[in-house]
Design a protein around this nucleic acid. Sequence first.
DNA 1: TTGACATATTCCCATATAAGCATGTATTGT
DNA 2: ACAATACATGCTTATATGGGAATATGTCAA
Lengths: 124, 124
Amino acid sequence: MARAATTSDAFNAIAEPRRRQILLFLAHDERGVGEIVAAIGLDQPSVSKHLGVLRSVNLVRVRRNGRHRLYRTNAIAIRPLHEFAETFARYWQHQLVRVKERAERAQAEIDRAGNPLQPPNLKS
Amino acid sequence: MARAATTSDAFNAIAEPRRRQILLFLAHDERGVGEIVAAIGLDQPSVSKHLGVLRSVNLVRVRRNGRHRLYRTNAIAIRPLHEFAETFARYWQHQLVRVKERAERAQAEIDRAGNPLQPPNLKS
DNA sequence: TTGACATATTCCCATATAAGCATGTATTGT
DNA sequence: ACAATACATGCTTATATGGGAATATGTCAA
């Protein structure tokens, strides 16, 4: 089996850096394709194809206005990603707390030794 | 240019559903490969290869214990994903607030009409 | 209608899969 | 040393990609 299609879900669509760039660019307000092209420095057909992928997983909404098509990020489609990542947030927070505590203990060790120029715990 | 390698960053590695499954399974505590195989119902070589991808982007840590290799999710490697998704969280929260407000206005319309059986705003 | 403008779509190709199957490697128990 | 256990790696194949170039589609203006 080959890799899942980029159009299969938000996770696959977002794997591509240029698409993340586009989503960020379209997060605040809607923009025409030309503006996107100018903003991210990629040729127009490529941008249109990326937009096609994003559309197919509902990560963007389109609105037609004359000969322009105004795209905008559909933020809620990113929710599954957020929920997945959120699951791990508390783990790395614990991890960081432990690192911080260790650093503080090491600093206390230095202070107690009275000589800040000596690296602590060289062998343990 | 082809698609970026799955080993290029966390975003690409996480695009694969089985790898997300593995990360969740290894989030709380470390497990041997055999346990992972049993848990997610995939053959051993496939699991090993997925673990290889996850290793290459530091999404898991390994520790050897006799002939076992104990894997564990390295939660902090998921942080870039979380930060990306977090950027959009406030947008969809606004979106949901708007939907809720609209629903409440519609309900108020119904209440005012005094007849809950008639659908509101049929033409506007 | 004709042309100009804004986007989308098609074709081409080098590249990278993920799964299945077979095999290699390291470690332990006897 | 030998067999068994626990993983990792190599090989093959169907499939999908993203960018570049060329072309098609759709809309407005004169």
